[in-house]
Design a binder for these strands. Structure first.
Lengths: 228, 228
DNA sequence: ATTAATAGATAACGTTAAGTTAACACGAAT
DNA sequence: ATTCGTGTTAACTTAACGTTATCTATTAAT
């Protein structure tokens, strides 16, 4: 369950600092000294999160980020920039390039860990919508766009409240797979939250109301699944 | 897609050095040995970026820069000074004359390339004032001009206080993307600053007051996004 | 067929996140 | 010293959202 993190930075000191602090917290950390190597490792490892220095000789962070985003397999990898304080324009360019967050140097270990946890938490809610690239293409009547927080049903986009969105995202993360009620509970609500039995049902109903009854199938005594 | 760069410097060594290094990176580079020639070529070629030596016999860099800025066709050309380290006055005078950035000599090739990439990125990014000139695009009702620190709403320019400006700039850096509250917090306020929950809201409200309610969309429990 | 278990439906309810407003604090400019 | 612009806080309101309660329908087991 420990998340994997790839650090791409030309300065060895920084890499070591980050690695040390994150491994102490139980993350699996790998490192690359430049953009090219980073891309290569990212493709191989498919980490959960990439920490990416903006200012690097050769291929800089922005460029690397754009390349990373172009790789389908890394669709669900979060990218977080490391920027020197003051380079504010890079914040802007960074988000344009497709970053999810950024952390400013100098890096404070405590802060680093809490930021990273926050980012991974955000990702976690995303579920892993591992759309198996194989046999993909058939017209999907429903798609989810986490970045814009919209779903699209037969072309028309619509907004869903958070719980409904996360619930749908989870079910759609692996179509046809049955998600047990307690898995849904843990995934969408969290392990510590305690809510009643009917809560899931109600959200399922609201979802069916919006996307149609055909997609979400009840497997009695087990859970729910999403069908195209 | 490769950017064109004009180098104006009286020293041939420098011109050659720069040209060599930039062409290696795929830029299209032309050169001029003095201000007059530089102006002429700038008008002809309309490069994306002009590298301009400050200390030149005859018409110096500052003067050349002012002339360049007076030419309407070069409105979207970035100007970057080349200054010897220590001539700090040039930083001041340079920006006054309308420069966008400067690079100090002696020039380190690696740094040169990354600075130039950054400048050109800024041109692409911040200068959303890509308006008209070219029979172009869909009416953007709002644009931001970081250099002059102004936004423009349906033609009329207005000033925004810093926090509001940065907030809007962030949201507009990727329209339709939902920015989480903590990302906004970090981006506009900084990771270490601690302010109350309602601070973001208040600034959002002030923005909506000024640019209209239609643009900034709340995604409850998630964050905010900008829509055209 | 009867019962028990499980899910569907609906509306009421409570909670939480965001909106709103005014007041306050601070620094820069006058 | 005073004013003004800016940013933050506090206190309250509003509305969206999520949860619960209750009842009904369906399915599975005996």
């Amino acid at each position: 369950m420990s998340s994997s993190i790839l650090v791409i930075d030309d300065e060895q000191d920084i890499r070591v600092l980050i690695k040390y602090n994150l491994e102490k917290e139980g993350f699996v950390v790998s490192e690359a000294a430049n953009g090219e190597k980073g891309l290569e490792m990212a493709v191989q490892q498919v980490p959960d999160l990439i920490l990416l220095d903006v200012m690097m000789p050769g291929m800089d962070g922005i460029e690397t980020c754009e390349k990373l985003n172009a790789i389908p397999g890394l669709k669900h990898t979060m990218i977080c920039f490391l920027t020197a304080r003051g380079e504010d324009y890079s914040q802007i360019a960074g988000f344009e390039a497709g970053a999810d967050d950024y952390i400013t140097k100098p890096i404070k270990p405590k802060l680093l860990v809490s930021r990273i946890s926050a980012i991974l938490r955000r990702k976690g809610a995303a579920g892993t919508d591992v759309n198996n690239d194989s046999t993909d293409n058939k017209e999907k009547s429903i798609t989810i766009d986490r970045e814009r927080y919209l779903i699209s049903k037969e072309g028309n986009e619509m907004f869903l409240p958070r719980k409904e969105f996360e619930l749908l995202a989870l079910l759609m993360s692996k179509p046809s797979k049955v998600f047990h009620r307690d898995v849904i509970m843990n995934s969408v609500w969290g392990a510590d939250v305690v809510v009643g039995d009917r809560t899931i049902d109600v959200h399922i109903r609201k979802l069916r109301e919006k996307i149609g009854d055909t997609h979400i199938v009840t497997v009695k005594g087990v859970g729910y699944k999403f069908e195209e």
